[in-house]
Write a protein that binds this DNA or RNA. Structure first.
Length: 310
DNA sequence: AAAGTCCGCAACCGCGTGCCA
DNA sequence: TTGGCACGCGGTTGCGGACTT
């Protein structure tokens, strides 16, 4: 037994929206709002459309301040980073990209970004789950080039969360980072604390368009195992106050300080904007714990090896 | 120039969840 | 407490334009 239809399918128009339909919907919402009820809206607005269709059309196309056109490199990077940590939670990713809708980002990922990422990664590495031990990464490391990225691992001996696995010397390896492209600008990406280490990714552009990545596992004061930070303190991700929900949604304001347990510095407040993330630390931690596509470091208690999953 | 194929995007579908009576 | 309803989300589909042969 299926679910009851949300509208009378026989009497609703389907398919592409005409300019007249758009005009009716826009006019109605500008004058009356959604009234908190999308199901009854089309009738009130004189539209022969399903309420869900109206909602989608408004959110994805008609509402003000939507961005159309090319995604910037910074947007690419944010999408890749968040996708790598929380997976296809498009609405969450969209909440970090002003003017972009979840549908936009989903389409963009499926049509372009995914291919771009596949081109960066070794195709054989796409099998899931895929693990790379630090030892193998060290063994397979190649000399740095202008476009390769590096992962450096720094022990923090004061941490209570020491990794079990041995790091061979030197503690710096080269690899084609999931997060690296041949184009990026200054960026600090999502990081996660494991075993007293925090993986921080940053990259900076060279004049020739190459990307220099600096991935560092640093212990962060006050951070605990599993703590997660989104974004960073680079100005590309400053002002994370954008909320992508419908115009009349109750827009959540929850506190987040980038995964740290300490307070904001003045600089961070400036860069992140006064309005906090839509999703709080605990929510993102929960999301990551349930995500099937984390790409972060864990210590394997069986082998005592630090393992990167992606 | 025509036919076939590919690709991107808008829209649809159905499920999960939260709210309310 | 429970059942119904509406919303939001993510996966999927289908159309139309671009590209290739």
């Amino acid at each position: 037994m299926g679910r009851a239809p949300c509208c009378d399918k026989a009497n609703v128009k389907k398919g592409p929206w005409s300019p007249e339909d758009d005009e009716k919907l826009r006019d109605f919402i500008e004058k009356h709002g959604t009234g908190g009820n999308w199901i009854s809206l089309p009738h009130k607005a004189g539209l022969k459309r399903c309420g869900k269709s109206c909602r989608l059309r408004w959110l994805n196309y008609l509402r003000p301040n939507l961005k159309h056109g090319e995604f910037s490199e910074d947007e690419d990077r944010i999408i890749c980073t968040l996708f790598g940590s929380i997976g296809s939670r498009w609405s969450i990713i969209a909440s970090q990209l002003p003017g972009r809708t979840d549908n936009d980002i989903k389409n963009y990922w499926n049509t372009k970004l995914k291919k771009k990422m596949m081109g960066i990664m070794n195709p054989s590495a796409l099998k899931k789950p895929h693990q790379v031990t630090l030892s193998s990464m060290l063994q397979n490391s190649t000399p740095s080039t202008s476009s390769s990225s590096s992962l450096s691992l720094k022990r923090n001996h004061s941490s209570n969360h020491q990794p079990h696995g041995p790091f061979t010397s030197p503690d710096t390896i080269s690899y084609e980072s999931l997060l690296s492209g041949n184009s990026c600008s200054t960026f600090e990406s999502l990081y996660q604390v494991n075993c007293g280490f925090m993986l921080e990714t940053s990259c900076s552009s060279s004049s020739d368009g190459s990307c220099n990545n600096n991935n560092q596992m640093n212990h962060v004061k006050g951070a605990e195992v599993g703590d997660v930070g989104v974004g960073g303190f680079g100005d590309q991700i400053g002002g994370l106050s954008y909320l992508s929900s419908g115009v009349e949604d109750t827009q959540k304001l929850v506190s987040s300080n980038g995964g740290r347990t300490s307070g904001w510095t003045g600089e961070e407040s400036r860069l992140w904007g006064e309005s906090p993330l839509e999703y709080g630390l605990e929510e993102i931690k929960e999301l990551m714990s349930t995500s099937s596509c984390n790409n972060f470091m864990f210590d394997d208690s069986k082998t005592g090896e630090m393992v990167m999953y992606y």
